[in-house]
Nucleic acid binder design. Sequence first.
DNA 1: GCAAGTCTGTGAACAGGTGCACAAAGATGT
DNA 2: ACATCTTTGTGCACCTGTTCACAGACTTGC
Lengths: 296, 296
Amino acid sequence: MSFDHWDEIRTAYQVARMGTVSGAAEVLGVHHATVIRHIDALEGRLGAKLFQRHARGYTPTEAGQDLLTVAAQTDDQFTQLAGRIKGRGDEVTGELIVTSLDALSPLLVPSIGEFMRRHPDLRVRLITDQRLFRLEYGEAHVAIRAGKLPDQPDNVVQPFFTQTLRLMASRDYVDRFGTLETGNVEDHRFIGANEDTPRAPYFVWLNANVPPASVYFRVSSMKAAKAAVQAGIGIGFISDWDRDGTDDLVEVLPPLEDWSAKIWLVTHMDLHRTAKVQTFVRFLKDQVKDWGVALA
Amino acid sequence: MSFDHWDEIRTAYQVARMGTVSGAAEVLGVHHATVIRHIDALEGRLGAKLFQRHARGYTPTEAGQDLLTVAAQTDDQFTQLAGRIKGRGDEVTGELIVTSLDALSPLLVPSIGEFMRRHPDLRVRLITDQRLFRLEYGEAHVAIRAGKLPDQPDNVVQPFFTQTLRLMASRDYVDRFGTLETGNVEDHRFIGANEDTPRAPYFVWLNANVPPASVYFRVSSMKAAKAAVQAGIGIGFISDWDRDGTDDLVEVLPPLEDWSAKIWLVTHMDLHRTAKVQTFVRFLKDQVKDWGVALA
DNA sequence: GCAAGTCTGTGAACAGGTGCACAAAGATGT
DNA sequence: ACATCTTTGTGCACCTGTTCACAGACTTGC
């Protein structure tokens, strides 16, 4: 159906360009006997003469000239392709796919915006989905993951920062129920997670230390949890970096070690070395300082 | 500068198309180990990863997708090229270059016109030049030659027809000088060739049998010779097929064997088998019957 | 959850292609 | 007209790249 040996076309192309087998052989860096054999094989395969042989060299026939023009285009496109691929490693363009926890979006998105301002040719796709996106299938370039250190062999994992949380309630709630320091756990109303076996360490702590009966409100996102706390529904976890509209809230217990969650920056081994991923990862780790969170 | 191994791009193309090394190997008709080595070599040469390897196969990276689109175009163009080259052998299109003696143009051109009417896609270039065009350099597809049988090894030569000539003069001339049958050669006025050593057999005969003093008019073309005869300048050769405006001329001597010139149809070995050349040559030999000339 | 199937990956035997040396033929320059 | 140079063409030794066989890892169906 389609051609079997593209190299032979390349050889024939150089012969047509140079006009001689010897010249083509020198350009191609092979012996002239090889060139002759390539041409013979190609002609045999096509069932048509591509060149007229004479003592001064090879002159292309009609078919040979046709091949010349086609192969010239191909050569052009391949050189351009090679240039693009080689060059692409050094520039930050194209698409960057980042998968992250939705909870971190308020933190992450402004930083990504700043990154895009520095690299105008970059298109970004931020995926915050329940399901785990697999870097090895090329579904994402960079993943921001929480929890235990992933042990995927092809992934290069580096610590991003440590997310510490504050257990808070509204001033209104404290007026009615007091803080945890003053009262019993059983007398309080907690905001928990929908999942029975949550992976977040603070919810693990909650499951372990708070009876289910005291959990009056269960949510799926940190955003909902924060809103619930602000509404005075109960005691809930709020990220330490989330200072927006938390002035009216009070900490009902000093932070515990058990609540802190390590956040990891994960890239695929193959993509980690590329400039696009590298600069993005470095930029993100720089931003951490401005976020006012604990470094990992 | 440009790519060294086009076959590797072809391999990578199939891998990108199929998604797996094994699938590509089957399509390419090689072992899958070969495919892996090609990809590895190509990636090493480009300095960039083209695919992400995982247990379900190879998924192309950004660079791999770029290669996919480029190589798809290439594959298309190569298949089209092969189709054109293979098909070209069966059809009579493109350009047909014929080199001939200018003297035969009045005979040849109408026939070529008829041939072109049968093959509308054919463009023809008729070269009637002093210098000999060399078929082995692809300068012409078909050559019409006179004289001795050429012995070029790569040329396939076949007899076309035998050009016989008539030695004629105007009625007016005969009234003044008589014919050759009635008078001496020395008393006549001949029309000869400019060249000292003419290749045409009838001029060779003229040189041998007519003293230079009797040659009063020398020309470079048969057309000029005919005009000279018609003007009553002297005795000259006119092709036997040339009946146009020769009614007022009289033959001053019956045709001799020495005057006849064999006309050859010459093609290059490589091109002789092609349908374009074949049909043209056959058509020409058919036309000979209508020309009213002696078959060779 | 286990087994079958599919995929990638790698070291060793093998073979097809490559390079080499030499020959022949035509072109070129003196 | 001769010698020199360039070019194509070919048989043989060698080496690169291919095939083969096997292993390992993951996916998938039962």
